[in-house]
């Protein structure tokens, strides 16, 4: 080899920089667990951790969809509204025409995907910022909720109540709900798609550099539309899980969930400019958010609004962290990456 060595031997010795944000989040999660365990009686039990999953299964599913969108360099503000719409659709279809549960589930998933597909198509073909398009989608979905009804609709369907009441015992008195299993499956499938399929890699490429992706001959149109469809599907599924959790449909459900989902993804180490982020990070991000709430509930004297202050603080730290030690990028964000 001549003197023009192209290798960077020192990078092999250090911890790969791309995993730093995820590792920081993981460290934070562990630190919170330990701190909570020391401070509160009964905190360090397995069930407390499991409850974080039980209470946040729907957020996890929604955040998975959001991960696809954000990694692809977009943003989806409609997810909370789509979750609410899904609870409304399932509650009303189960109540009034009394459709069978499987059909309702299929319809809800189809509706969410369709909405996402539409938004993705508008974003790609008409080159309108994702921020605005999904904002319109958010208005649309919330509006549709109110068209269905302004009151909360209870769910009495046998299948739904059965799922809601089911507990999967893990032994030693610990249990999880079926929703957690569903969320886990979603995470695994999504992880597989992101890591092991061409679609997944195209998502990273499009988010990293849209123009280059186009020149490298990747299906940019299909990928852009696919991520919003996936996000729509995940939101609809999240809505179903929420229906199991709440056993009702309500148009004001999941207000602000898009922020929680975005925060979880960012705290999980994804760049909002796209092209970087791991599903593991998103899972950790959701867990950190969930554990924050658990700690606050254990604290008792601390009010719930500390959650959002704490999340804001975390967001700030993570964004500044990314800005200064974050991944070096060759070029600026692709047009699709910026809503501003």
């Amino acid at each position: 080899m001549t003197e023009t060595t192209a290798t960077l031997p020192e990078t092999r010795l250090t911890f790969p920089r791309k995993y730093v944000p995820v590792a920081v989040t993981a460290g934070l999660f562990v630190a919170m667990l330990v701190a909570g365990g020391i401070r509160y009686e009964g905190f360090a039990s397995g069930q407390v951790v499991l409850n974080v999953f039980v209470d946040n299964a729907f957020l996890l599913v929604v955040a998975v969809g959001m991960t696809f969108v954000i990694v692809a360099g977009g943003i989806d503000l409609s997810v909370g509204a789509v979750v609410a719409l899904s609870t409304m659709i399932s509650a009303s279809l189960l109540a009034d025409p009394g459709l069978p549960a499987p059909l309702v589930i299929a319809l809800v998933l189809a509706a969410g995907s369709l909405l996402g597909l539409g938004m993705g198509a508008v974003i790609h073909y008409f080159e309108i910022q994702p921020f605005i398009v999904t904002l319109a989608g958010m208005f649309l979905a919330r509006g549709l909720c109110y068209v269905i009804g302004t009151e909360s609709i209870p769910i009495t369907d046998g299948t739904f109540t059965a799922v809601a009441d089911a507990r999967i015992e893990l032994g030693a008195g610990m249990w999880i709900s079926p929703s957690v299993v569903i969320a886990a499956v979603v995470v695994l499938v999504a992880g597989y798609v992101l890591h092991y399929t061409r679609l997944g890699r195209a998502v990273y490429a499009v988010g990293g550099d849209r123009q280059s992706a186009l020149l490298m001959g990747l299906p940019v149109a299909r990928t852009t539309i696919a991520v919003y469809t996936i996000s729509g599907l995940c939101s609809a599924l999240g809505g179903l899980l929420m229906s199991f959790y709440m056993l009702s449909g309500y148009g004001l459900n999941a207000v602000g969930m898009e922020l929680d989902a975005i925060a979880a993804v960012v705290i999980g180490g994804a760049l909002l400019t796209g092209g970087s982020g791991y599903l593991v990070g998103t899972v950790l991000g959701v867990l950190v958010l969930g554990l924050t709430q658990t700690i606050l509930s254990f604290e008792g004297t601390l009010s719930p609004w500390w959650t959002s202050i704490f999340i804001g603080l975390l967001l700030f730290v993570f964004i500044v962290l990314q800005r200064f030690i974050g991944v070096r990028r060759t070029r600026g964000g692709a047009p699709v990456a910026t809503a501003a």
Partner: peptide
Amino acid sequence: VIGIQPIIATLILMVAGRGLAQLITDG
């Protein structure tokens, strides 16, 4: 100064500000 994308920079205050407001009113 720090050079954060506006949508992200203001997202921080959007999230934390709600909490601050509730903190002020004590909920």
